[in-house]
């Protein structure tokens, strides 16, 4: 640390003033983190480029970086503008796969999350319900989405229904457990005070359970969508007829490794972007807004 400072203070000229300007703009610690954090990425990038140049590993195994991005263009070759992509024209291969994966996530979220929350709150309120639903949930969670795929294929055939079923299965039970635990963690005092002031059962649900369980519910949303996304990719690989998972699986069978790399990168970018810029801020905001930091003793 100390010799880093020494090195920087000895630097001279325009470079020094520029570096000071950058440091004051971004902040010393953050800049350090950004630079250090980018080292492994740069190393991998350089190694990758060198591999392309010297062919230590053949291009069949590690495709040149250019080919990976080239694959995106090749896949979209016959696509006519943004309109074609949005209407999911048959020629827009890449965007079609992306949209069908995202579409499934949205559909599963729209159906699965409210259902999971509703059943979770019900089970959190009512011991009898939870006593019977909980073991089922434990078992369903243990089977894990992936193990349902063969049976789902038998029931629904290859395609939309199977992938949707797998995702719903994953999302529903995780959401159920999180909402249930959230409701149980709400202190009894709040419920009693609402009842004392003449609130109905509906008031208790609306004013106490739902907001009280909110942080847990949002965390559950984040976890279940993360797991759901993984399960969806697996489901598309085995029992899908479109989507990113299907794309990388088929490309691997045809040894189009550059398409596989492209697909994997897109899959993780979509997950990272949703998690970091949508779900994580939402979770933070909810905990700040609804979190019961004050606890009655």
């Amino acid at each position: 640390m100390s010799d880093a400072i020494a090195k920087e203070s000895s630097a001279e000229g325009a470079f020094a003033s520029l570096s000071v300007a950058i440091q004051t703009r971004i902040g010393r610690q953050r800049l350090r983190k950004i630079i250090l954090g980018s080292i492994p990425f740069v190393v991998i990038f350089v190694l990758w480029q060198m591999n392309t140049a010297f062919e230590w590993l053949p291009a069949v195994f590690i495709p040149p970086l250019g080919d990976v991005f080239g694959a995106a263009i090749t896949l979209q070759e016959d696509c006519v503008g943004i309109g074609g992509a949005l209407t999911m024209d048959n020629s827009c291969l890449l965007t079609n796969h992306i949209f069908s994966s995202i579409g499934r996530v949205i559909l599963a979220a729209v159906i699965g999350l409210p259902l999971g929350i509703a059943f979770g709150i019900l089970a959190g309120m009512n011991r009898t319900v939870s006593r019977y639903l909980e073991p089922v949930g434990v078992f369903a969670n243990s089977i894990s989405g992936i193990a349902w795929i063969p049976l789902a294929i038998v029931w629904f055939g290859v395609g939309w229904m199977t992938t949707l079923f797998i995702m719903l299965n994953t999302i529903f039970w995780l959401m159920f457990f999180n909402s249930m635990l959230g409701v149980r963690s709400v202190a009894k005092v709040y419920e009693q005070s609402v009842l004392t002031m003449g609130g109905s059962r509906m008031d208790v649900i609306r004013q106490v359970y739902f907001p009280g369980a909110m942080p847990s519910i949002i965390t559950g949303m984040r976890i279940s969508l993360g797991f759901g996304w993984r399960a969806l990719i697996a489901a598309e690989m085995i029992g899908g007829d479109s989507g990113l998972g299907f794309m990388i699986f088929v490309s691997a069978e045809e040894f189009k490794i550059e398409e596989v790399f492209l697909g994997v990168i897109i899959i993780s970018l979509i997950y990272m972007a949703t998690d970091r810029y949508l779900l994580a801020p939402l979770e933070k905001w909810t905990v700040e807004r609804w979190g019961l930091i004050w606890k009655p003793t």
Binding site: I146, V260, F261, G263, V264, S268
Partner: peptide
Amino acid sequence: SVSGIAIFPIIVV
């Protein structure tokens, strides 16, 4: 965030 299942096709190749 790159799930194990997603890198599966690469490793298969």
